[in-house]
Design a protein around this nucleic acid. Structure first.
Length: 239
DNA sequence: CTCCCGGTAC
DNA sequence: GTACCGGGAG
């Protein structure tokens, strides 16, 4: 693969969008990537599951985070891992005990599914969580978001994620029009197209922090937002 | 008190 | 489309 730019570059530059992500301006894409990663360096949260590369720990955090706020997950994440430090210990535990440890996070089907994932990982994968998307999606309890989160956070793959934070950020910055709920396919394409090569981990963590801290559902910080010069929704707030 | 929110399985 | 289960806003 040639690494130097040649005549080909010029003809590619003329196109402002690709088939993969129609309407995505290459310069806006580049600025979004750069500014997001820069913002993350300065404002990124110091969360416990960002200090580990153990896929089991990442899985536990992601299942807890599926429908529960970060602040409530943090203490339970530590407590759960103290009691069940690995897939093996979780698989060997009684489901009733796992559910007790889970309380009061809610959605109590989640500890059952987490336990079954641990059992299946021990039995079918030798205690090692697979990184393949299809295999991850075959587990009850791992959907498209969690599969992407595990692939990017536990295995450093450039896999897209789309949760409510990411939906809100991408819809505001790049789309602005229409109901985000009905444009999931396009948002998944955007989420994938925006990941800078080799930086899936940082980019995905960054966009979730950005949605949680700056591009919030209520009262977003548009005035000081690093994306405001090209955001299709700016200014959203009235403050 | 009454809504409203949210990943996944169904 | 709905249920799941808690927290938070109004």
């Amino acid at each position: 693969m040639p690494t130097t730019s040649g005549p080909r570059t010029t003809s590619q530059r003329k196109k402002k969008s690709s088939k993969k992500s129609p309407g995505l301006d290459v310069s806006v894409k580049r600025r979004f990537q750069t500014r997001l990663l820069k913002w993350y360096e300065k404002h990124g949260r110091d969360l416990p599951w960002r200090k580990t590369s153990d896929p089991y720990h990442i899985l536990v955090s992601e299942v807890m985070l599926q429908q529960t706020q970060v602040e409530r997950v943090i203490p339970k994440y530590h407590e759960f891992l103290d009691r069940y430090p690995s897939f093996e210990e979780l698989a060997d535990a009684a489901v009733s005990d796992v559910k007790k440890t889970w309380y009061p996070l809610g959605y109590n089907i989640r500890p059952e599914r987490l336990h079954s994932i641990a059992c299946e990982t021990m039995e079918r994968y030798g205690g090692r969580l697979p990184s393949d998307a299809e295999e991850l999606l075959s587990f009850k309890g791992i959907g498209r978001y969690t599969a992407g989160a595990i692939r990017s956070f536990a295995f450093n793959e450039d896999a897209p994620i789309l949760d409510t934070n990411v939906i809100r950020v991408l819809h505001r910055v790049f789309m602005a029009k229409g109901d985000p709920k009905t444009q999931k396919a396009k948002l998944w394409q955007l989420s994938e197209a925006l990941i800078p090569s080799g930086k899936g981990y940082d980019f995905n963590q960054a966009i979730m922090d950005f949605g949680a801290i700056c591009c919030t559902a209520r009262n977003p910080s548009c005035r000081q937002c690093t994306m405001k010069s090209f955001c299709k929704t700016y200014p959203f707030d009235q403050k």
